[in-house]
Every structure is written in C-alpha cells, then in structure tokens.
C-alpha cells in the first residue's frame, strides 16, 4: 500500500516536470516561460520529495523518522523559496526592459523551432 502511494507520487512528479520542460521549451517569451518554471517546478519537486519521504518511513526507527522529517522540511523550504526566486527573476527581467510577447504584432522575433 505504501509502495503504491510512493509510486503514484513519484510518477506524478515526473509527469508535471515533463509539462514544465515542455512549457519551458515551447513558450515564446521570457514571461510565459516563467509561468511554466514557477508552477511546475514547485509542484513536481514537492511531490517527488514527499514520495521519497514516505519511502524512508519504511523501517520505523528514530533515525529514519528524523530523515523523513528532514526531507519534508526540504519540501516546505522549496515550496516557499521557488516562487520567491521566480518572483526575483521576473522582477529583474521586467526592470531590464524585456518586452512582453504581444501576440500578433512582433511574430518574427524569437521563433521557436
């Protein structure tokens, strides 16, 4: 049962990470790429770390319990830090005057693939 939950969590994390990468490569400008990076990165990391924490609860001893709590602490830390880092990068890009991609007007620059 525990193994099943761990497998589901890890697979969901990989799936969301795949979506993130796809968005990161396909989206046309910096701001939309940050959408993919900020959301998908946070969720996939948290899911995979939760799965690994559950996996380390397999043999219930004090040491393993502490390890699991530490992994959950890393997950919470990343869940707070990753949107903040996204926000800082976004602010730097906005400050340095990157034009947002406007749809139909300037379609010849930054053609992907």
């Amino acid at each position: 049962m525990l193994d099943f939950i761990v497998i589901v969590l890890l697979s969901a994390g990989i799936l969301f990470f795949f979506g993130t990468i796809n968005g990161l490569l396909r989206f046309p400008d910096f701001y939309t790429r940050m959408h993919a990076a900020g959301k998908g990165d946070t969720l996939s990391t948290v899911l995979i770390l939760l799965g690994l924490a559950l996996y380390s609860f397999h043999h219930p001893s004090v040491q393993d319990l502490l390890t699991g709590y530490k992994i959950i602490f890393i997950a919470v830390l990343i869940a707070i830090a990753s949107p903040t880092a996204t926000h800082a990068l976004m602010d730097a890009g906005y400050e340095s005057g990157i034009k947002p991609w406007g749809g139909e007007t300037d379609s010849e620059e930054e053609v992907d693939k």
Binding site: F17, L24, D41, I48, L49, A85, S96
Partner: peptide, 17 residues
Amino acid sequence: TIDRLVGVNVIGTKSTI
C-alpha cells in the same frame, strides 16, 4: 541571460532531488 538563469534555477532545484 534571464532565460538562461531560469533554466539554471530549474536544474538546481532538481539536483536537490
């Protein structure tokens, strides 16, 4: 450069895992 920084940030987060 900022696009590169985004990629590096994502790779760094995954290295933790």
